[in-house]
């Protein structure tokens, strides 16, 4: 690794140190796992409970951006696939990728990347509208992966699409929630998507 690039961990321009990158990716993968420890919430009269964990990939994209957000979700899913019970309800292993929602899990990686790509375009920091738009796109991408994946089992894309409609009310509530939370976090920690200039706290 070139030393010249590491001019300072506190420099606001340029890339963050690889260690800082690695830490954010790892910690956000863990964050998604910890969300799985909480029971579902019923929001705004939605019939289906919001499994808090499902907000993780959208939050990862909204807060870390495309590269680190996508990497965090990928890492989380890799751990699940290895057999760690990190999905909500203590589920894990390869079987979770085999069922009807398996494609939606894989789609989360693309969700995070797409959300991140849109949010990154907003400078200096994304407003609520951009976040809403990004998260709508993120959820849509998840369907684009999840529905054909399920169709591979059912053999019929149309049927798979109809069956996937059950997720729509929950996802709508979820993306509003994520946008509100992400907007608040961006206000509180304005440097989030950049290279995190930080002061040694002393």
């Amino acid at each position: 690794m070139s030393e010249a690039r590491n001019t300072s961990i506190s420099q606001s321009s340029g890339r963050a140190l690889p260690a800082a990158d690695l830490a954010r990716t790892v910690v956000f993968a863990a964050f998604i796992a910890v969300l799985g420890l909480f029971p579902g919430f019923y929001l705004g009269g939605a019939a289906v409970p919001i499994v808090l964990q499902n907000t993780g990939p959208l939050l990862a994209g909204s807060i870390l951006g495309a590269r680190r957000g996508g990497a965090a979700v990928l890492l989380f899913l890799a751990l699940v696939a290895l057999g760690l019970p990190l999905l909500s309800g203590g589920r894990g292993g390869l079987a979770v990728f085999a069922g009807p929602s398996g494609g939606f899990l894989i789609g989360y990686v693309f969700s995070a990347v797409v959300v991140g790509l849109i949010v990154q375009r907003a400078t200096p920091r994304p407003g609520l509208l951009v976040l809403l738009l990004a998260n709508v796109a993120g959820v849509a991408v998840d369907y684009l992966v999840g529905i054909p994946y399920w169709a591979a089992f059912t053999g019929d894309l149309r049927v798979a699409a109809i069956q996937s409609l059950v997720f729509v009310p929950g996802d709508a509530a979820k993306l509003v929630l994520v946008s509100l939370v992400a907007a608040a976090v961006h206000r509180a920690v304005p440097t989030v998507p950049a290279a995190s200039p930080r002061t040694a706290e002393d």
Partner: peptide
């Protein structure tokens, strides 16, 4: 030693290159 914001932690971090002086 020094009060909060005196720069002591920043100075210490320079010893192993966690922070580089400007």
């Amino acid at each position: 030693v020094g009060a909060n914001g005196s720069g002591k932690s920043t100075l210490a971090r320079m010893i192993n290159g966690l922070v580089h002086p400007t």
